[in-house]
């Protein structure tokens, strides 16, 4: 079932579309709602063609009112429907904070288990490309603090499809973080059906010298860095966490037992970040296996700038990762 046996190459956006389409064929309770998802065929063409197949009762355009339609989705989920709510960008989810943070993740708990909230919120996360501060949110650092949520952040079309199918079948609210910068990326995706369970990290590159842990788009920066480091004889193991909640610490710790060095790469801000959490859990569980402190490569602690030069300086990139690996391994 692995990606290796697949020959077909499709785009990230097509993988997402296939996941939604297959699940909507499988379960009539699943519907897609969002801005421009139907008649416009998707602001980023993720839902292209879905209106034609499923009709306007299941692929539903809503006006720009995230708090309203996010809450609408949660109400529908409380009754047992399985909404997929598309945010054009996770940056826009902030106006829906009360609904997505107060209602979705707490409903099951507050109701003593009576009302679940099987809903998927999905959309673009992280820097798009010179979009400035308000449109460049990487929300994982912010939202990972909230119990009751699943946070999924795939880096490849294969993972995106398998994880989105799991998300749609999940009985808890799932925040599914995509990246505008990856939607056109192609990768192998098999024709036959598969699902990827939450909480299972994927080793994207094996290596014995230093563990690189990342999530979403920066996984590719790690792979680039690992490629260059290999030319210098340093073999990095690149772990793609794939889900932040749940977080597969077992795979990370197993790798550290082997490498004894670790760099965590995370596109959120460093203060109270996903990287901080991973590092803390490493200290709690594997202190004795470390030969140095855990290094973090995050976005710089500033609002996302517009200038291309400044934006590139702010975001994680292969150069920063290479430097961190060398520092972690006492090579610099």
């Amino acid at each position: 079932m692995g990606a290796a046996v697949a020959t077909r190459q499709i785009q990230f956006r097509e993988a997402l579309r296939e996941a939604m389409t297959e699940e909507m064929r499988r379960d009539k309770r699943v519907f897609l709602m969002g801005e421009e998802v139907a008649q416009y065929q998707g602001a980023y063409k993720v839902s292209q063609g879905m209106l034609d197949e499923f009709g306007e009762k299941r692929v539903i355009d809503v006006p720009i009112s995230e708090n309203g339609f996010a809450g609408l989705g949660i109400g529908a989920a409380m009754m047992g429907l399985r909404p997929i709510i598309e945010f054009m960008s996770w940056s826009f989810s902030l106006v829906a904070a009360d609904q997505i943070l107060n209602n979705a993740p707490k409903m099951l708990y507050m109701s003593g288990g009576q009302f679940g909230c099987p809903i998927v919120f999905r959309g673009n996360d992280g820097a798009g490309g010179q979009l400035g501060s308000t449109h460049s949110w990487a929300v994982e650092g912010l939202f990972a603090n909230v119990p009751g949520l699943r946070i999924v952040i795939p880096s490849t079309p294969y993972d995106a499809k398998g994880l989105l199918k799991t998300a749609i079948r999940c009985n808890d609210p799932v925040f599914f973080l995509e990246s505008e910068r990856m939607l056109g990326n192609k990768g192998p995706v098999p024709e036959e059906e598969y699902l990827i369970p939450f909480g299972q990290a994927d080793i994207k590159r094996a290596g014995g010298d230093c563990t690189l842990v990342s999530f979403g788009r920066p996984v590719h920066f790690c792979l680039e860095a690992a490629e260059k480091l290999a030319e210098e004889g340093i073999e990095c193991e690149v772990i793609d966490g794939r889900t932040i909640r749940p977080l597969d610490m077992d795979t990370i710790i197993e790798s550290i037992r082997k490498t004894n060095y670790c760099v965590v790469v995370d596109q959120s801000w460093p203060f109270g970040s996903v990287a901080s959490e991973v590092a803390t859990q490493i200290y709690e569980r594997a202190m004795d296996h470390l030969d140095n402190r855990v290094y973090r490569v995050c976005s710089d602690d500033v609002p996302a700038p517009y200038s291309k030069t400044l934006e590139q300086a702010m975001l994680p990139n292969p150069g920063k990762i290479i430097k961190a690996v060398k520092q972690a391994m006492y090579l610099e």
Partner: peptide
């Protein structure tokens, strides 16, 4: 209890959750 339908632990899973396929919110 009742944080999620398929508990994965409060702070890093000791057992990884499998696919979720049961009905939500049975009345206690």
């Amino acid at each position: 209890s009742d944080v999620v339908t398929e508990p994965f632990g409060e702070y890093g899973p000791t057992s990884l959750p499998e696919m979720c396929d049961h009905e939500p919110g049975d009345v206690p």
